[in-house]
Design a protein around this nucleic acid. Structure first.
Lengths: 168, 168
DNA sequence: CTCTTTTGCTTGGCTGGCCAAGGAATGGGT
DNA sequence: ACCCATTCCTTGGCCAGCCAAGCAAAAGAG
């Protein structure tokens, strides 16, 4: 079953998107992916997007907020609000950095740590589901191509000279 | 999967995302893509997401709101609010459907039509920028693989039996 | 002809995410 | 020592997008 079924294929892309078929597909896929992830995360008590922040905290332990902002590539205000909510849920603890009174140190609480297994399962599960039918070579190729696009977009985003020390 | 390149490649993916590297990259790429698109759209007076709705209207002329919902795959409430804003901006006109007093007919105004060229340019431009360095074969492969993932996700989303008449 | 279900859309509430503006603290230059 | 630029974070405002409820009209039972 190679699924060449003439069923519904292209989801008829808008003619105005002729100039950007890949981008269009990318947008659709990503939204579906996010929704599917959100469904899994809801059972864990998280909203889509929060899991990425928690991952960073699981990896890095206590971290300055600015490093979170950097590593996630998010707007500072976004991070502030997300952390406020995560703190209110008890997943995260914030404390003033003694060495720099402007800064805030963030770390996952025990409740936050407890989410890790569930989140990892959710990601693995979704990965399996969304890549079903793709062979290892195809998966690798998809990852590679997405990486290229990511590089192009990162470059266009202005700050080409990225890749900072990342001391975490 | 070799990819042990010490450069900068992977944007060091969180270890908790090991189970879903493709999904993780997908999320990042898509966000960057959306932002880059938003930058272009702002000059036109649109917010990211709205252009997809306008495309549909450009293609279909007057359309029932429910068909918009269906074809975009969005939540009804999302569409309602987007249309309210687009209407307030004068890009869209909404009128009650005489044949079905529950329904609403939507169409692009002249001001809305006027956006078309700009949006198409924006999409083409972003497509070129984001796919720079990829050959035609790679682009096709990327589109194909994304399509497969889209199918998988659509299926998982429950309503497998989709593919409605779509009389537009 | 009435009662129930289904369809279409709206409102309210919540999150992620952006930008713009602003307030502290730090650090660099003179 | 001083002042100014930079960094770090917060607040407010706005939009896309979700879900849950709800209301009105249309389509199906009975």
């Amino acid at each position: 079953m190679t699924a060449v079924e003439p069923v519904c294929t292209e989801e008829q892309l808008p003619s105005a998107a002729r100039g950007g078929p890949v981008g269009h597909t990318l947008a659709r896929v990503s939204r579906a992916h996010r929704i599917a992830m959100g469904r899994r995360l809801r059972d864990l008590g998280l909203y889509p997007g929060q899991e990425l922040m928690m991952m960073r905290l699981w990896d890095c332990g206590a971290v300055r907020q600015s490093e979170l902002i950097q590593s996630l590539g998010l707007d500072p205000s976004t991070v502030t609000k997300m952390l406020q909510r995560l703190e209110q849920c008890g997943y995260v603890h914030r404390s003033p950095d003694p060495a720099d009174r402007r800064a805030v140190r963030v770390e996952a609480t025990e409740r936050g740590q407890a989410l890790r297994a569930g989140v990892e399962d959710a990601w693995s599960d979704l990965e399996a589901s969304s890549l079903a039918g793709l062979g290892p070579a195809e998966r690798a190729e998809l990852a590679r191509l997405l990486g290229l696009v990511a590089d192009n977009l990162r470059e266009e985003a202005g700050e080409a000279g990225d890749c900072p020390p990342l001391n975490c």
